[in-house]
């Protein structure tokens, strides 16, 4: 799938998007400069990070702990801000956790 129409002639009338759920193909991860990192020793599995993530990219794993899908996480830091046991820290992209 092309990311953008090549010319104005390929622009759908009214900009209508006919493919449901196509936001999935628009990966917003590269916008990120900070990355959330979970310290599971502090995590109480409350799910506040999952609830507050505006991108809906925080998911619960099979072990009950949470992680962000880095294809979509914009690094906004809301999860870290809301996490009351302070289990999430935002670290600079490119740095080791």
């Amino acid at each position: 799938m092309k990311k953008w129409p090549e010319t104005w002639k390929e622009y759908n009338t009214g900009g209508i998007v006919f493919e449901p759920g196509n936001a999935r193909s628009f990966k917003t991860g590269p916008w990120r400069s900070l990355r959330p990192v979970w310290d599971n020793s502090k995590c109480i599995k409350c799910g506040v990070c999952y609830i507050f993530c505006p991108e809906g990219c925080v998911q619960e794993g099979p072990d009950g702990f949470f992680a962000a899908d880095l294809d979509y996480c914009k690094g906004c830091g809301i999860c870290a801000h809301e996490c009351w046991p302070s289990a999430i820290s935002m670290i600079e992209e490119g740095q080791e956790s």
Partner: peptide
């Protein structure tokens, strides 16, 4: 389908 969608700088001019 979606109507009234976002138009980023990459598409606004063509719109």
């Amino acid at each position: 389908l979606s109507m009234g969608t976002l138009g980023l700088p990459e598409i606004y001019t063509e719109a």
